[in-house]
Write a protein that binds this DNA or RNA. Structure first.
Lengths: 337, 337
DNA sequence: GTGAAAGCGCTAACAC
DNA sequence: GTGTTAGCGCTTTCAC
């Protein structure tokens, strides 16, 4: 059994009271220098560390921030997490990371666990399988500071930060049109996700602005967001077969971009198909065949999200004005033309 | 302020005592069915969730496991984490992930935080910058269950699990020799890391077994383990320049493999250089130029590590016999010959 | 300047 | 079958 030193042990050893020890350790002005020195020296000697659990129970604060992402293996998320950590640590917060794996029950369980362990706030990127938001609404109504990033929802009024997905998808689609492509397909994640909706809207809007008809057959959703390779295979197959036959493809999800590349490469079907995919992979530019990509400012999204949650946590007054920050992404064209 | 429902509120609302509520919620046999139903129904109604902080303070247990890795962006680690989670969740443990970013102070701080928040055990992969192990020894001596995975240390007697690094590096080196290469260089992470030492030993041993001289000039270490691109650039440069001039390269670290590929690609220097790199990247086989790679069984390492820590946590008697499990890795040859 | 004591939410030994 | 109470480690109000 792990047994840490306690304030009580110090008190007994030094024949003072626990409150004196507590005050001495927190450098209270009402304790004599002499006693402080004594207590602090002894605490150091026995390697005393205050028990954060007990302190949390007392104060209701923990100086830690919880994160929920679908998967840390996704470069976008690991970069976002690094952004969050960079701000959190310099503000004195610890960061606790959990994964939903895009499974609703995991999301509910992890958020419950984070709330229960009294993190001071939670940063959430929604699981792609989640369609019921009650677990989050409840928590929010009971006062838990929450900030959404990347995959955000409208149903909860709070701070949010994401890429300007509409603009990014619009720009990518426009570029494909400008390059002469007319049969542009859209491959997206689960349809209720904010990132899917906004990117699809950008795509549609660009088509409309360039007098191209929107064709339902050119839009495919992967409900398991890249975890199920078969789903992607059949989506790509139908997009590539007549009468649909797309000659360009916008992939609206990081996980899908890599997975689709794999499918297309193994099928030898990447020729004559212009691809732009959202991807923050650090090796996306080393892949062969080359793929054009949209790189989100993941680190900055993390930084902004962390600043927002800390603002919420540390605000002395309730906040009613919430901002949704949208950050630009970079489009990297690697196509032939 | 986030305010959760408490057992006390339930007790008051139902005009029973807190202990009755506590027992009813834990389905104690000494409570009448009637009262149980009443309490449980009300608890559900107000969405009561027992406060794990309070319970931890009382029981000293938290049913959660802490993980320390250098970086979740590293595919090897994210896969290991997924393996850990798969076992942990089915055993009723939550998993808390933290990153050291290979910085000693972060490692100390995160391990302290995990211990303080009373996780029941900690899974550790050492930071590449750590050379002093006192923070871990202390914790271990005070009874905290600890399991090492991947980057392990000798100084603490406990369960450990890693790839059979000696064997993997030996096999890779031997393959290069068999393919006819004679000037085989070794590019490794920080020299005190177990993975570096064992892989270097495997490399040396294969050379010796094939009557090749070991040449100090053919071994380079990257102390910042791939975070500093300049370090890699200069290492590669000196390996490729006469009189050293390596014509084959064993890269003994995941992060280095990708980073080295980037450097070599940008320099156009990957021709006439056979490379085998440790890598669990999910796109390593899509890179161009192709690189041969050693893929570790990361998921299984995670599963084993989790089983070990749970065994330690749940053991009723102190354990004195510790196993170090070594798992085989797969070598994928992608070279010309 | 220091001590005593209450209380954070929960569990469990001990009443009755 | 249910209530009372002590205590986990800590902070903080109130005494002195």
């Amino acid at each position: 059994m792990f047994q840490a030193a306690t304030i009580k042990q110090i008190a007994q050893a030094l024949s003072v009271s626990v409150s004196t020890v507590s005050r001495a350790l927190s450098d209270s002005h009402e304790i004599s220098e002499e006693t402080k020195k004594l207590v602090q020296a002894y605490a150091k000697k026995i390697n005393y560390r205050s028990n954060p659990i007990a302190r949390s129970l007392k104060s209701g604060r923990s100086n830690s921030i919880g994160i929920l992402v679908s998967d840390v293996a996704n470069s976008f998320f690991s970069q976002t997490i690094n952004g969050i950590e960079s701000i959190a640590y310099e503000s004195g917060y610890h960061v606790i990371i959990t994964q939903s794996h895009d499974v609703y029950e995991r999301e509910v369980s992890n958020i419950g666990h984070l709330a229960g362990r009294s993190v001071d706030g939670i940063l959430i990127s929604m699981s792609s399988q989640t369609t019921n938001y009650d677990h989050i609404k409840d928590l929010h109504e009971r006062g838990m500071p929450i900030v959404f990033f990347d995959r955000i929802i409208d149903d909860v009024a709070t701070f949010k930060v994401a890429t300007n997905n509409f603009k990014s998808a619009y720009g990518a689609t426009k570029l494909l049109i400008d390059k002469g492509f007319r049969r542009i397909a859209f491959l997206g994640n689960a349809p209720q996700l904010s990132i899917t909706i906004e990117r699809l809207n950008g795509y549609k809007s660009a088509l409309a602005d360039h007098q191209l008809n929107f064709d339902d057959l050119l839009v495919k959703h992967c409900f398991e967001g890249g975890r199920n390779i078969q789903e992607i295979e059949s989506a790509l197959e139908s997009l590539r077969s007549s009468p649909t036959e797309a000659n360009a493809l916008l992939i609206a999800s990081d996980q899908l971009s890599i997975a689709a590349m794999r499918v297309l490469t193994s099928k030898g079907d990447s020729k004559n198909l212009a691809i732009i995919g959202f991807s923050n992979s650090d090796v996306i530019d080393l892949l062969s065949p080359q793929i054009s990509y949209i790189r989100q400012n993941a680190f900055e999204i993390g930084r902004v999200a962390a600043q927002m949650i800390i603002k919420l946590i540390e605000s002395r007054y309730p906040i009613y004005e919430f901002e949704t920050r949208l950050l630009d992404a970079e489009l990297h064209w690697r196509g032939a033309k």
